[in-house]
Design a binder for these strands. Structure first.
Lengths: 191, 191
DNA sequence: CCATTATACGGATCACTGATCCATTTGTCA
DNA sequence: TGACAAATGGATCAGTGATCCGTATAATGG
């Protein structure tokens, strides 16, 4: 790749990160190109589709999440690790609104550029889950994909207008569905 | 309203219901108009925005759900009623993909055409929830909005590619987060 | 039953989107 | 410096939702 092309590539990616953070996953490609100071054609040659752009955009974040899962695996108790990672995943999904759908379809399509990255995230989560399940603190009838799904769903929900203020509580409800040792802490028990 | 206009209104609505069921919430307005045999301008005069069209489309479904909640309130046990209604809500959200976001924003905006309808659904769900909470079979720290949110999130999730086959299981996980008397039925309990 | 009038209709058009083409510019290397 | 491949971006295309306005028609009064 020529030097100027490489520079544009990085610059576009940086600008795209800002614009997407501002306008969500359906930001205008023209807008991104304009703000990057390049023509639309240039943007679209570097990233032929919207998915390709997101792929590049998300790869670093997803890799970081995968790595984070590995760290938590050794630094925290199984259920604490799972909850911490869950929280980070939710925050991630929420911050790039509209991105989960992309990841879900990427996970279904082995040819997708995001496929490997998604699979890594899934299996990283699955390992954290398995560790908690072995200890008996997570419900046994879950797998990594479902864990990912629940995280995505929560991230999606708290990204919807009106639900952001309830994020902490909804997070608590959702984790108590996954973990077995913190069942409904603040609930008036019957019997 | 003139007779032909009224006829067009109903016809467009019926066609829109089909098209949306086929192509989801971002179906082309031109497409709907074409299939209804009217000009795009006519469609857009009857329903100035996409939201206006969905408003009309969803009102009947939502009213039906509200009514259903009332029926269940007298015909089933509190937790059975809640679960049944939960299931219907999830199916509804899933069938009209992309619609929840619309309802969420409608619920935030008192001027929205869907506001009253949404509020009715929320309070109908809240009543079912309260009944189960009084009996002690639903966790007490939930309100109608959160119940609606969890239903929406699940509906959204099972509408994503790859998660549809897991609908039943995810439904089970989610309900066990809400109910207290069926905590993780198929799980190896710790201690 | 016909003439008038208000109403509804829809083709044409606009601004916008992502995608593609290709003449021009620019980096690179001999 | 010269030549060539590579990268660029303006122009253009089909698609979207929205708007305008001349035309067709339903409703109404004579």
């Amino acid at each position: 790749m020529r030097a100027d092309a490489r520079k544009n590539y990085s610059h576009i990616l940086a600008v795209a990160r800002d614009v997407v953070a501002e306008h969500g996953a359906d930001a205008s490609m023209r807008d991104i190109a304009r703000r990057a100071g390049v023509g639309l054609a240039t943007l679209l040659r570097h990233f032929p589709t919207r998915e390709a752009l997101f792929e590049a955009l998300l790869r670093t974040n997803l890799d970081a999440l995968t790595e984070k899962a590995g760290e938590l695996e050794t630094s925290s108790s199984p259920d604490e690790a799972l909850v911490s990672w869950f929280r980070e995943m939710v925050a991630f999904v929420q911050s790039y609104s509209g991105v989960v759908a992309l990841m879900a379809s990427a996970h279904e399509d082995p040819d997708s550029a995001l496929y490997a990255t998604c699979a890594a995230v899934h299996s990283a989560g699955a390992r954290l889950l398995l560790r908690a399940q072995t200890e008996g603190t997570a419900r046994a009838d879950l797998d990594g994909v479902e864990l990912f799904g629940l995280m995505s769903a929560l991230g999606w929900l708290v990204g919807q207008p009106g639900f952001a203020p309830r994020e902490d509580h909804l997070f608590h409800v959702m984790t108590s569905a996954i973990l077995t040792n913190r069942p409904c802490t603040d609930i008036k028990k019957a019997a």
